[in-house]
Design a protein around this nucleic acid. Sequence first.
DNA 1: GCCAACATGTAATGAGTTACATGATTAG
DNA 2: CTAATCATGTAACTCATTACATGTTGGC
Lengths: 190, 190
Amino acid sequence: MKRENKTQFALLGILTQYECTGYDIKKFIETSIGFFWNESFGQIYPNLKRLEKEGSIKSLRKKDSKGSVKIVYSITEPGRKKLQGWLAQKAEPVAYRHELLLKLFFGSQMQSPKVKEHLSRCNEHNRALLKNYTQIEKDIAQYKSTSPDWLYWRMTLQYGILSARMELEWADYSAKLIQSAKNKKQRDQK
Amino acid sequence: MKRENKTQFALLGILTQYECTGYDIKKFIETSIGFFWNESFGQIYPNLKRLEKEGSIKSLRKKDSKGSVKIVYSITEPGRKKLQGWLAQKAEPVAYRHELLLKLFFGSQMQSPKVKEHLSRCNEHNRALLKNYTQIEKDIAQYKSTSPDWLYWRMTLQYGILSARMELEWADYSAKLIQSAKNKKQRDQK
DNA sequence: GCCAACATGTAATGAGTTACATGATTAG
DNA sequence: CTAATCATGTAACTCATTACATGTTGGC
């Protein structure tokens, strides 16, 4: 089973939601699905060209108010079919590499304050994320009754929210686990 | 900022926990950290050779009971230092690509039963994971008072448990979200 | 006797990031 | 006027997976 270039489907999917430039796609990703999906320009531009060549999308050179030319892409019917074919297939399980977890798994090789540092950084990070998500929630609320996409934006956003809460809960659990181990050690030494 | 080969640190870390072969490392990963970290043979063997060349690990050809030769690796002092240097550094945020979330983000392009299919598959998957984690929890319990690593095994395992519960909760939320949207639509049509 | 698992690798491939290059426009 | 952002790309690189190759051992 060959590995599949998934960037193309991300691009196709975004182009079902609005017509835009490669640059716009990057911005869109950063401000919406960035917490679970990322793309770099080095992937976006070549893939857009390839998708146009195969007929899945088409481009239009548009001049904006100031006369500068932008390349605006839109999805074609074959492109939509291609996307739908992929969407219907089973999603491959995430093979993500969680660097923080790997480091903590080797925690016995670390000095104890370092472990706590990792955990409190994790806390900060997730509190910031939650704040961010709350803002996004407000931002998309306006589309609730107007866009068929809202439902799915909200659904994925909820994943982010629950995920951040979960990590906060986990960091708390972990800190307590360490503390109780330390306490036990002290008791045993007496 | 160059990307760093992180496989090497995973290998070094595992070798702090026990001396073993490349094949053992693969098995170990699958049965312990596999839910947040994976490596393929195509990475493991070349990296072991490289690490030995640079002096971070050393190998020993050992004969087992049947006389077949295995290459058993162990970590060296420089290797331990190298690992500790990496462990002390800030962990990079996960750049994981969650395929299921991407598909659902484009849910409006899917037929509604397909969405439900994705969600129920997610449920099944996580229930299986939880079962698995429960087993692991029992398996490692014996090391609670004997290994300095237990604490960190338990910690990362807890991440898995909370993570699976979270996804179950999320799938439930999502199913209800869809249902309520469908109900609303029906009411509006009347 | 055969299949699964053990055990160690290499080669091909491609996916994806980072860095580089270039130029226009806009906000301070 | 200068820095940041918009905007479009290419080249180099490397990480990582998949497939291939080869041989052994253990269970049914």
